Amino acid sequence: MNQQKQTIVHVITNFAGVGGAEMMLARLIQQTQDQYAHVIIALMKTSDVYAETLVQCQSYYALGWNGLNTLGTIAKLRHLLKSIAPKTVQCWMYHANVLTSLSCIGLSSKPKIFWGIHHSLASPKEESLSTKIALVMSKVLAQQPSGVIYCAHSSLQQHQSFGLNNNNAQVIANGVFLDMFQPNPELHEPCVIGFAGRYHTAKGYPYLFATMAQLKDQPIIFKIAGSGASLNHPEVKALFEQYQLDESKVHLLDQISDMPAFYQSIDAFLMTSITEGFPNVLVEAMASGLPCISTDVGDAKYIVDELGSIVPPRDPEVLAKAILDYVKLSQTEKLQLKQATRARVEQNFSIASVSQQYMQMWSKNA
């Protein structure tokens, strides 16, 4: 006789964009659908981007929250949780955390609620008004959930410093499907350094270009992927011209859809961000056998460990030196690094091991 699967309800602020929390939720459902029946409640909306995930769910709902209808949304959420009556609710992101906790106040049979925080809090003053309100509410309600899951150690420390305290706080990193990313057994000649990130202040594009300018006389090719990484973007074009870079050595690829192929086309990965939480891109790169040269932001140091270089943000000279140090390694040393970076991800960041940690959290506190 088939044992009925336990239902896990996931409440997420929005299940429409391609963000770290949304992608992690999709991967988690795909990995654990044999053990649990999953229900998704998106406060705002769902999207066809996640059609494959939604099909794998027992049911899903979109409540059309827009800020102005907050009380009505809480009432809808409360009604749904009463009718589904799950033992466990996993929340994803601030607003989902807060509205779920509010919707369960006074329920006769309360589910175990776990908050999920997938955000870096380096500068609370710079957050939007909506996020600031959610943060203040989070501080007030933080003792209510059975646990709080952070995707990054840096995020846990920042939120605890802010005053968001819960006795059962745990870090569970974002995971990747290992079979999606495979190391390329070959090394390129000349050496190819890759960067992936949309054109945004957080990604440190001015420092990226200043770093490439320091190395333009070296036998190195740079491949730059990400929305806006194109000479059609006026600010990128201005940086390109300011440093008199060469299109044969700096390949601006704009947004690309096949990231695994991109990682296979490079030898090492560069991240110049000035702020991050848990940079998924470093885990994907390392799963692809790429040593990483990264700024010391978010959980970069924890992810890269000893298998690359961690340098201070906003310092092109140090970034350039770290790249040169890698380029000068022998072929044998580079191939050994390839194997070691892949092994680190297999041990720490596979979706299988990450899912196991979520399931342990749910069952331990069930």
Rank of each mutant, 00 (worst) to 15 (best):
S248L: 13
H200E: 14
F162W: 11
A62Y: 00
Y243F: 15
H159Y: 15
Y199H: 14
E189D: 10
L319Y: 08
N174V: 00
S353Q: 12
G277M: 07
S288C: 02
A225H: 01
F262C: 02
I74T: 03
T73V: 13
G226L: 05
H10N: 13
M259D: 02
D305I: 02
W115N: 06
V236P: 06
Q170L: 14
W115Y: 09
P219A: 13
K125N: 14
H233S: 13
Q218E: 13
L107W: 03
V281I: 11
N165P: 00
Q356H: 11
Q35I: 14
Y263W: 01
K301I: 03
K328V: 07
S120A: 15
E276G: 00
A322P: 03
F177Q: 06
E241T: 13
I84G: 05
V55H: 14
Q336E: 13
A300V: 04
G20H: 09
H10I: 15
T32E: 15
V345Q: 00
L307Y: 05
V39N: 07
Q339T: 11
D254K: 05
I84W: 01
G106R: 00
D315F: 09
D48I: 08
K301T: 12
P86C: 04
D48K: 12
W115S: 04
T275S: 14
A213Q: 11
Y94G: 06
F240V: 08
V281L: 00
A26Q: 08
A51D: 12
F177V: 01
H79S: 13
N166W: 07
T70M: 12
L253M: 14
L68S: 12
V11H: 01
N184A: 02
T341C: 15
L102T: 04
M137V: 02
G197T: 02
Q255F: 14
K203V: 08
S355T: 07
C151M: 10
K216R: 14
L215F: 01
Q158K: 11
C292E: 00
K249F: 06
E247K: 12
K338L: 06
N280M: 13
F15G: 09
I266P: 02
T70D: 12
T70A: 12
K82L: 12
I303E: 03
K249D: 06
K87M: 09
H38W: 13
Y243E: 04
I172H: 08
Q90E: 07
H38F: 12
H10E: 11
Q214G: 06
S288D: 00
A229C: 15
W65C: 11
L77N: 06
L77S: 08
A268M: 00
